[in-house]
Simulated assay, not measured.
Amino acid sequence: MATLPLTGKSLRLARLSRHGDDRFLFIPLDHTISDGPISTASGFNQLVRDIADGGADAIVVHKGRARTIQPELLSRCALVVHLSASTAHAPDTNAKVLVGEVAEAVRLGADAVSVHINIGSDTEAAQLADLGTIAKASDRWGIPLIAMMYPRGPRLTEPGDPVLLSHVVNIAADLGADLVKVPMAAPPDRMVEVVASSPLPIVVAGGSGADTSVAQLATNALTVGCHGLAVGRRVFTSAAPRQTVHELASIIHGPELGSESTPQSRMAGVP
């Protein structure tokens, strides 16, 4: 990304790339609302510690979960507060609703906020309105907005279509996001078309891992010009989350920058 004048938003954007190389490794841990617990209550802080020590740039959690994290664990890892949710038990699992506000995230010391939008869902109109509302508030508070954009709905048959993904990332840009997360195109080499169409840096969703290792996914994403990866489930379900994160950080930031021993501090959040 181009160098921006010093503002609250530009300062926080810089924190989201741990090594200042405009590449990102985000670990979403917001699955606790959609699917249920991802660890024991006592083990959650250890999971966050492993993720931070492994070299992740940021974790993504909901506002209430953020309050349970030991502050020192975020000295080398940015905090993204997720503002939308749905559960696996809903009549329409694609119907995301807002469950938080930007002001709450700022009070928590967040470095960024994120929202999840399902393009093609039956509630697409309401979700687009929510994205516009959060983008306006994000600008007011000087905090970056990550739009997690997924082509999902009853009328979509090819969610990995690069033409569709190009449309999706441009919706995020037009409505005021600063970064956009989308699935990888199918086949992966056509993701280059999506990147070429996007005014925003793209991070690729981790996916289910059925066909491609997460390390290969990270390599593919960088090869086609994406700025990184946002992978949660394939980290917190792995036998060794710290090692998995370290492997990904070494790919995204380079072996030296991805080192677990690299000391890096970040300033406390400011409104």
Score class of each variant (00 low, 15 high):
residue 70 Q to H: 07
residue 187 P to V: 08
residue 145 L to K: 07
residue 171 I to K: 11
residue 159 P to G: 01
residue 240 A to V: 06
residue 29 L to R: 09
residue 106 V to S: 00
residue 162 P to L: 04
residue 45 N to I: 09
residue 189 D to S: 03
residue 205 A to F: 11
residue 120 G to I: 10
residue 127 Q to D: 06
residue 46 Q to A: 13
residue 232 G to A: 14
residue 142 G to H: 10
residue 138 S to V: 12
residue 133 T to A: 15
residue 141 W to G: 03
residue 17 S to H: 05
residue 84 S to M: 06
residue 61 V to Y: 05
residue 66 A to M: 10
residue 74 L to M: 12
residue 100 G to E: 05
residue 29 L to A: 11
residue 113 V to G: 05
residue 66 A to R: 09
residue 253 H to C: 01
residue 13 L to Y: 02
residue 89 H to F: 15
residue 122 D to M: 12
residue 222 L to N: 03
residue 179 L to C: 03
residue 250 S to A: 08
residue 194 V to T: 04
residue 35 D to R: 15
residue 139 D to M: 00
residue 24 F to H: 09
residue 6 L to K: 00
residue 16 L to W: 02
residue 180 V to M: 09
residue 128 L to K: 08
residue 205 A to E: 15
residue 76 R to W: 07
residue 250 S to C: 12
residue 203 V to L: 04
residue 22 D to C: 04
residue 44 F to E: 13
residue 227 H to S: 15
residue 184 M to C: 06
residue 26 F to K: 10
residue 245 V to T: 10
residue 2 A to Q: 15
residue 211 D to K: 14
residue 147 A to H: 13
residue 188 P to F: 01
residue 177 A to S: 14
residue 25 L to G: 00
residue 189 D to T: 03
residue 66 A to E: 04
residue 14 A to I: 03
residue 256 E to N: 10
residue 13 L to M: 13
residue 117 I to S: 07
residue 68 T to E: 12
residue 129 A to Q: 05
residue 68 T to M: 10
residue 84 S to G: 05
residue 102 V to H: 11
residue 31 H to T: 14
residue 94 N to Q: 15
residue 218 A to D: 01
residue 259 S to T: 03
residue 61 V to S: 02
residue 143 I to Q: 09
residue 227 H to G: 02
residue 8 G to T: 04
residue 185 A to C: 08
residue 25 L to H: 04
residue 122 D to G: 13
residue 95 A to Y: 11
residue 32 T to M: 15
residue 44 F to W: 13
residue 194 V to E: 01
residue 36 G to Q: 14
residue 264 Q to M: 00
residue 73 L to C: 03
residue 188 P to Y: 00
residue 53 D to L: 11
residue 95 A to K: 14
residue 16 L to E: 02
residue 159 P to S: 06
residue 207 G to T: 10
residue 166 S to R: 05
residue 60 V to Q: 13
residue 211 D to Y: 12
residue 214 V to S: 11
residue 221 A to V: 06
residue 105 A to D: 03
residue 47 L to R: 14
residue 212 T to R: 10
residue 79 L to K: 09
residue 35 D to Q: 15
residue 14 A to M: 04
residue 216 Q to L: 07
residue 204 V to Q: 02
residue 193 E to W: 03
residue 64 G to K: 05
residue 46 Q to K: 07
residue 215 A to F: 01
residue 163 V to K: 08
residue 207 G to H: 09
residue 80 V to H: 07
residue 207 G to R: 07
residue 147 A to G: 15
residue 202 I to N: 01
residue 250 S to H: 04
residue 29 L to T: 08
residue 201 P to C: 06
residue 27 I to N: 09
residue 114 S to P: 09
residue 27 I to V: 15
residue 253 H to S: 03
residue 214 V to L: 14
residue 251 I to T: 08
residue 190 R to W: 00
residue 65 R to F: 06
residue 25 L to R: 04
residue 22 D to L: 01
residue 47 L to T: 14
residue 51 I to L: 08
residue 177 A to V: 15
residue 169 V to Q: 05
residue 39 S to V: 11
residue 210 A to F: 10
residue 264 Q to Y: 00
residue 175 L to P: 08
residue 258 G to W: 04
residue 216 Q to G: 02
residue 107 R to Y: 00
residue 132 G to M: 07
residue 40 T to I: 05
residue 49 R to D: 12
residue 196 A to S: 12
residue 189 D to M: 02
residue 58 A to W: 00
residue 38 I to R: 11
residue 249 A to L: 02
residue 34 S to H: 15
residue 48 V to S: 11
